[in-house]
């Protein structure tokens, strides 16, 4: 499965060596503004990190620098009995789901974009409409289903609802639509079958979109709360967000712990994003060399 995600970077027959002029004053202004905007964007996040380093006598002062920085909150979060297991569970569910989604959503998106057959618009609208039902109304039937199949408290039970998404299908359909039909025709003349045309010719062309989709699906599953909450009762099967929810309660919410937990939970997605970013950039550079 990972091949689908990494392939584009290896062989993207793409173009784009857009004339990028030497820095002009306008460009410098743009970079400055973008940088300022970026700093504004991360400020709340920085506050979160700062708060996670404070003890509860300092936490409500909202200063950016803790007077007496402490790692106590992290020690307490990481020391929570189930933490390593929760982390692993989340990672497993997010990784498997992302693999499945990349494969199926791009396959379906491609089919809807490049094939003409009767029933196509209906299939597309039906898949798109799955985006429009709030998860809140789906979890009850899922639960009944899981119970009937014995999936409660299993990894399969955690991940089955997310194996394909209307969101990813729609995204991939939009990107496959910009793939020129001539390339597909050429593949056909070369004697490739339809699956090979998709896999070898078209998929590598939508590399940036696949990388973006991978990030969003991973992120979506990494932070998913409602279904994991309901699908498992055994604390060992908790995912990270469900485990971290235990830090807020009826009587008191330990904000230092919440912030430390949120910071720890953020790291893997940040890593995934930075890694995939590189693929995007490399894919484009390769394309530039070829054209």
């Amino acid at each position: 499965m990972t091949r689908a995600a990494t392939r584009p970077s290896a062989a993207v027959p793409r173009h784009r060596s857009q004339a990028r002029a030497a820095p002009r004053p306008g460009r410098i202004l743009a970079v400055t503004l973008l940088a300022l905007g970026g700093i504004v964007m991360v400020m709340p996040f920085v506050y979160m990190l700062a708060t996670s380093l404070k003890d509860n006598s300092e936490i409500f002062e909202l200063s950016l620098w803790p007077r007496h920085p402490t790692l106590d909150n992290y020690a307490q979060v990481l020391g929570a009995s189930g933490f390593p297991r929760w982390f692993f569970n989340s990672l497993l569910v997010a990784a498997v789901t992302t693999g499945s989604v990349l494969f199926f959503d791009s396959l379906v998106g491609y089919t809807l974009a490049k094939f003409r057959f009767c029933g196509r618009p209906a299939v597309f609208v039906a898949i798109l409409s799955t985006l429009m039902v709030p998860t809140e109304m789906l979890v009850l039937p899922w639960y009944t289903m899981s119970k009937a199949m014995g999936w409660l408290d299993t990894y399969w039970g955690l991940l089955f609802p997310g194996l394909m998404t209307g969101f990813g299908t729609f995204l991939m359909k939009q990107f496959f639509e910009s793939v020129p039909d001539e390339l597909i025709e050429a593949g056909r003349i070369d004697g490739l079958n339809e699956f090979e045309i998709w896999w070898r010719i078209c998929l590598p062309l939508v590399g940036p979109a696949l990388s973006a989709l991978a990030i969003f699906v991973f992120l979506g599953n990494w932070t998913a709360f409602l279904w994991p909450l309901i699908a498992v009762a055994d604390t060992r099967m908790y995912t990270l967000p469900v485990g971290l929810a235990s830090f807020s309660s009826e009587l008191q919410t330990e904000w230092g712990l919440i912030m430390a937990g949120a910071a720890v939970a953020t790291m893997p997605t940040l890593v995934v994003f930075v890694l995939l970013q590189k693929y995007i950039v490399r894919g484009i550079m390769l394309a530039g060399l070829k054209v």
């Binding site: 979890v139 009850l140 639960y143 009944t144 119970k147 409660l152 409602l226 909450l229 309901i230 009762a233 604390t235 469900v242 929810a245 235990s246 807020s248 309660s249 009826e250």
Partner: peptide, 20 residues
Amino acid sequence: VTVPYDDFRVKIAAAVPAGQ
């Protein structure tokens, strides 16, 4: 079985109809 406070009723609502 323990359930995060905010979500106690959600979990009950899912489990009880399924006979859990």
